[in-house]
């Protein structure tokens, strides 16, 4: 998995690529811990994410809580969307399809 980070003012955009699973979720966790304190919104671009496991879901929820809801999940693929729907998160998260 790769993460590319872009900063647009106080908004951070993370472009995630590959499998967001148990092995790669800690990388995303590190990325979230290192967000600048002034960050007021976060976008996670899921266009290139092929698979998300429960560990990945946990990081999304952690980010959602960390940003106090100012998190956008952008362009999740069908597989990722299925997982988000199954776990009920689609009702909670701001998802840009």
């Amino acid at each position: 998995m790769n993460i590319k980070k872009e900063k647009k003012g106080n908004c951070i955009e993370l472009y995630i690529n590959g499998w967001l699973d148990t092995l790669s979720a800690p990388t995303l966790a590190t990325e979230l811990n290192e967000l600048p304190s002034e960050t007021d919104s976060l976008v996670m671009d899921f266009t290139e994410v092929e698979y998300i496991s429960s560990a990945g879901v946990r990081q999304i929820v952690a980010a959602h809580k960390q940003m106090k809801g100012n998190l956008v999940i952008r362009h999740p693929g069908a597989e990722v969307m299925d997982v988000l729907k199954m776990s009920g998160l689609d009702k909670k998260l701001n998802i840009e399809e």
């Binding site: 199954m86 776990s87 009920g88 998160l89 689609d90 009702k91 909670k92």
Partner: peptide
């Protein structure tokens, strides 16, 4: 129905 997983949010629906 897709209720929310347990432990995430208090309003699990």
């Amino acid at each position: 129905g897709s209720g929310m997983a347990l432990g995430l949010f208090e309003d699990a629906d």
